[in-house]
Design a protein around this nucleic acid. Structure first.
Length: 738
DNA sequence: CCTGTGCCTGTTTTT
DNA sequence: CAGGCACAGG
């Protein structure tokens, strides 16, 4: 261990002994260095055995990087083999994979991706008779996710008689039941179920705690409530938790991140030592000055000031162009100039939304500069790859309804809506998961459909048999061939060729993983957990990416573009002071990625919404003192403070930085449940009775089989003449008596 | 049962 | 401008 390579604050953090430790690590202050040295230190000193260290990050990229650096410090690959080093989700998933019984899951439970989630919620909504037009499934899913991540349950939403919340609770409950039935978990479930298991099964908890006797958490500012509870549940004994983070870089509030977790760390872990890292080793002084001035405007922070011991550096540039094409032209002009100094691979254009890449792509293409869009449509998200993965999921989990629905007719086998209706009805009648019911080949199928289903299930059976015999890569190859997935893309138009290549790449990836000793199950977990930045090749091309995707990166020259009201800060944060602060942090994160060159850019008009619209410069630009940048626009630029910024509607803070205890921030309007129109046709007041004939807008007429619950929670089981058995909540469903 | 067309609507970030 | 959805025609 070479501890002399650390500055005094870093050394203090690295060599800290037992007990909670909070490291407030400003941007570029050596946060990863502290984490990796601390792990290496614990091992080298003999304080910890590898199997007692659990280090949790937010991205696979960070985990991988940390492992490499720890192993390097310890003298080579494999030296940190026993250390758990992975993302929160991977950690939770490992707990669930090891103790599926405790979580009430089948041994080979599937993992739903966002598309599956949306499809399932949509389905559940139609079953409940909720109008998907009024409430898009994604919106409900987002609210469910927010609720899960704050530890709520469906019943906690039901009080108060708000029909919108009741509807949400009903959808949530049905969605949850459906996942159970299907034997699948979604992303949020991983955390929620892991927490549940750990809380309710002491042997599991203590096993996890032993493995995490030394617990280290990266990017602590982005932990949410569930994650905090999970950490607290497994930290015992000496409470050796090391949390590293920077409140100024908290950018996942919309996903449940609680900036309070880092602001009030000492209340959660009394007696914690706090170490602040304020010396920046990344950026030049002008960049730090501008970024510091911006973030100073935030109130939800502890407050710190980064400094660097190096002097000099290029001034920060500001360019405001006529429109987004002028903005792109200016940026690419600079890129061409900088190409002499930096390699293309160390230049990046950062933006708020994915949609902003287009003009840059066009301009870069025009000048034949190579670029890559980080996190566009990702490999594992492509339709053909997801189809193949769905087949694999079905092999492992015969009850995987989502996977079944996805591929039962891919390639087309003549199983359309009519056949699916028969199957759904059969599944509802027998109470079996859809694919299991379908495998029983119910009687009222047309001969053609029966034939098609039969061969589909034979294929799956054969696949399950071959799983034991073939190497995983060969199994996938066989599957692609036999299922007809590959031949779907026969021919040589470029689209088909690309798809075929993707499928071949999938088979290659599986074969490769196989060689590395991963089972097919493990590989599929990895696929499900794969994310942003994981497939970034290190080729020499300019990166275009969102600010979120840039988190944790270090880039020689940064262009932060689209600094306009409505974009950055984004329009969705308009009425919410906390959301506005997060937008400011987002800009701050972007600026502090830059090592040596930083430019800020905006356009005066932008093509949005199908038409050209005038835009005004971001308030963040007005917040920068004119001395912190050099305006190089070819148009006169006036940076006024927009009305919203002048209105002092920011919550008041205790002086000194940390928010006053007990202060409850106002509920942001965007989070407040929106009233939803509920058609209550039960105006007579004497309710519904079994045997009553009813009519539903979509399902037609039917008869009530049974009633459960009362009041707004009343659920009816109705047998519809056309659509079969459905469970409906009459306060939500448009149901009328006949 | 599958595919193509045309209308409508809704726009953020993603482990 | 895009993607989703409903409907018509093959």
């Amino acid at each position: 261990m070479k501890e002399q390579e650390l500055n005094p604050a870093q050394r203090e953090a690295v060599t800290h002994g037992c007990g909670p430790l909070l490291v407030l690590a400003g941007a570029g202050s050596g946060k990863t260095r502290v984490l990796t040295y601390r792990i290496a230190h614990l091992l080298a000193e003999g304080s910890a055995r590898p199997g007692e260290i659990t280090a949790v990050t937010f991205t696979n990229r960070a985990a991988r990087e940390m492992r490499e650096r720890v192993e390097h410090l310890l003298g080579g690959a494999g030296h940190a083999a026993g250390v758990f080093l992975g993302t929160f989700h991977r950690w939770a998933l490992e707990i669930l994979r090891r103790y599926p019984d405790a979580a009430g899951l089948p041994p080979r439970f599937s993992i739903l991706d966002t598309d599956d989630q949306r499809a399932l919620v949509k389905r559940v909504m139609t079953d409940l008779g909720v109008d998907a037009k009024a409430d898009p499934p994604q919106a409900l899913l987002a609210r469910i996710s927010a609720a899960v991540n704050t530890g709520l349950s469906p019943s906690s939403l039901e009080s108060g008689g708000d029909p919108g919340r009741e509807m949400l609770a009903a959808v949530w409950r049905a969605y949850r039941d459906e996942k159970r039935r299907v034997g699948a978990v979604d992303f949020d479930d991983m955390l929620a179920l892991a927490l549940e298991v750990v809380r309710e099964h002491e042997p599991v908890r203590s096993a996890v705690a032993r493995r995490a006797r030394w617990l280290l958490v990266d990017e602590f500012q982005d932990t949410n409530k569930l994650q905090m509870w999970l950490l607290k549940a497994v930290v015992d004994g000496d409470r050796n938790i090391t949390a590293v983070g920077d409140e100024d870089q908290s950018i996942y509030r919309w996903r449940g991140a609680e900036i309070d977790n880092i602001l009030t760390f000492e209340q959660h872990f009394p007696g914690a030592r706090v170490v602040a890292l304020e010396e920046n080793y990344r950026s030049t002084q002008p960049i730090l000055d501008a970024a510091g001035e911006l973030i100073r405007q935030n109130t939800f922070r502890r407050g710190k000031r980064l400094y660097t011991s190096r002097s000099g550096g290029d001034p920060v540039r500001l360019y405001v162009g006529e429109d987004e094409r002028a903005e792109a032209r200016w940026v690419v002009d600079r890129i061409q100039e900088l190409e002499g100094t930096f390699s293309l691979g160390s230049l990046a254009v950062l933006m708020r939304t994915n949609a902003q890449t287009r003009p840059f792509e066009e301009e870069l293409t025009r000048r034949q500069l190579s670029y890559r869009v980080v996190g566009g449509l990702r490999f594992w998200q492509r339709a053909e790859v997801r189809d193949a993965v769905a087949y694999l999921r079905l092999l492992g989990n015969p009850a995987d309804t989502l996977a079944f629905r996805r591929v039962v007719n891919v390639p087309a086998r003549g199983i359309g809506a009519a056949t699916m209706d028969v199957l759904e009805r059969h599944a509802a009648a027998t109470g079996l998961p859809l694919p299991v019911a379908a495998a029983g080949l119910p009687g009222d199928l047309t001969p053609r459909a029966r034939q098609a289903l039969e061969s589909f299930f034979e294929l799956l059976e054969e696949g399950r048999r071959l799983r034991g015999e073939l190497a995983a890569g060969d199994l996938v190859g066989w599957l692609l061939e036999e299922s007809g997935l590959l031949s779907l893309y026969d021919g040589d138009d470029p689209g088909k060729l690309a798809r075929r290549e993707n499928l071949e790449q999938l088979a290659a990836a599986v074969a490769d993983a196989d060689l590395h000793g991963q089972t097919l199950e493990e590989l599929m977990d990895s696929i499900a957990l794969l994310e942003e930045g994981d497939e970034v090749d290190t080729g020499d091309s300019v990166s275009l990416m969102t600010l979120h995707a840039a988190k944790g990166l270090e880039i020689d020259a940064v262009f932060l573009v689209g600094l306009e009201e409505g974009l950055l800060p984004h329009g969705s944060s308009r009425d919410d002071p906390q959301a506005l602060e997060e937008e400011r942090r987002l800009a701050y994160v972007g600026m502090t990625r830059a090592r040596r060159w930083l430019a800020l850019a905006a356009a005066r008009s932008r093509f949005l919404f199908g038409q050209r619209q005038a835009t005004s410069p971001s308030r963040f630009l007005a917040e920068l003192p004119a001395t912190t940048y050099q305006d190089v626009s070819d148009l006169p630029v006036t940076l006024g403070r927009p009305e919203a910024a002048i209105r002092s509607d920011r919550p008041t803070m205790a002086t000194g930085g940390v928010r006053a205890r007990g202060h409850v921030p106002p509920v942001p309007s965007s989070r407040r449940p929106r009233p939803v129109r509920a058609t209550v046709t039960d105006t007579a007041g004497n309710g519904w009775r079994p045997g009553d004939r009813v009519r539903h807008r979509r399902f037609g007429s039917g008869v009530i089989l049974s009633c459960q619950g009362r009041g707004p929670q009343l659920k009816l089981v109705v047998y519809f003449d056309r659509a079969g058995r459905k469970t409906l909540v009459p306060t939500i469903a448009k149901l009328e008596k006949m």
